[in-house]
Design a protein around this nucleic acid. Structure first.
Lengths: 164, 164
DNA sequence: CGAGGCGCTTGCGACTTGCAAGTGGATCAC
DNA sequence: GTGATCCACTTGCAAGTCGCAAGCGCCTCG
């Protein structure tokens, strides 16, 4: 369980940071849902994370170098969390995880359309998405045109509307 | 925690099956290490899994449809575990996880060479590897030539020899 | 027939999780 | 300016999970 006494295998080391039920979901909500604050992550989470678990995960992810925290200059008690470059590079991992889940788990149509588009878009779309995230979280210059998140969101809403 | 009351998001559903510290490591040892028996998985695991945890994970993975169990006809008390097609399709997920770990975690050179080759080989290599696994675990006809696992293993041993 | 290997199971203490409630401070509405 | 509300967490506690060591019945080998 200790990080120290386990192996230096890349997969094992990745699992030591991300191998639990919540860490990747928190990052997913920040990436795909655009959430940046504690309260947003807490209350708008599909799966209903508990506040102490969320606090603990944010702390661990910061220690692992996947997230940073800054005070909101416009509102002293608000904090803003940002993804680091390392976290942004999880985009292909999410694409594969989502693609696998879509094919092998009982997903709903609305929620799987994003995974499908991300998978079909391939590395080109992933790179665009990562550039969007760098602009949003790291202050890199933004590219013109709609963001990948907006495109995915629009597709989701279209499917959700049809389902109703 | 219950599968029932969480969301139908592909990433969440994937995490419900694989989102713990051991499940993916067990599958990794079967895929990349060629282990098929309880005892092999127990004693030749780099990370030292406990026997009760291993038993529990094998059971859960069978219930999730990722593994099957058969009696060894030549030895009544031995069991053989096989990967299902769903588990074999985790190859790209492993490739991405390994690639990310290699870039962002303190991996050792010997253990990361496999991840590097798998990443650089891209979808073509992944497909070959998946075909190898289908031959080994599902009884599909084998392709001629060395298996991907053998190639990865040879590269690993070369690096390990240099390191000494 | 005894030693050892096989796939597990059991007991138990330590740690982790999930829920509900609470904390101190900042902001907002009036 | 004052009371209600929002904010990011923290605390207490019950329940569940993990990890280690030991043990189980069965089978095989010499």
């Amino acid at each position: 369980m200790n990080a120290a006494n386990r192996s230096a295998c890349p997969i094992n080391l990745t699992l030591e940071v991300l191998g639990d039920r919540w860490s990747l979901l928190v990052i997913r909500d920040m990436m795909f849902g655009g959430r940046r604050r504690f309260r947003e992550l807490l209350t708008r989470s599909e799966e209903g994370i508990a506040s102490n678990i969320l606090a603990d995960r944010l702390k661990r992810l910061m220690e692992a170098g996947l997230l940073t925290r800054a005070d909101d200059p416009s509102h002293k008690q608000k904090a803003i969390y940002s993804l680091t470059e390392a976290a942004i590079q999880l985009v292909p991992v999410f694409a594969q995880l989502g693609g696998w889940g879509r094919r092998h788990r009982p997903v709903s149509d609305e929620l799987s359309i994003r995974a499908q588009l991300l998978e079909e878009g391939g590395p080109k779309l992933w790179d665009r998405f990562m550039d969007d995230l760098r602009a949003e979280h790291l202050g890199a210059p933004a590219k013109p045109g709609p963001t990948v998140r907006e495109e995915l969101q629009a597709a989701y809403e279209e499917v959700a509307a049809k389902a109703r």
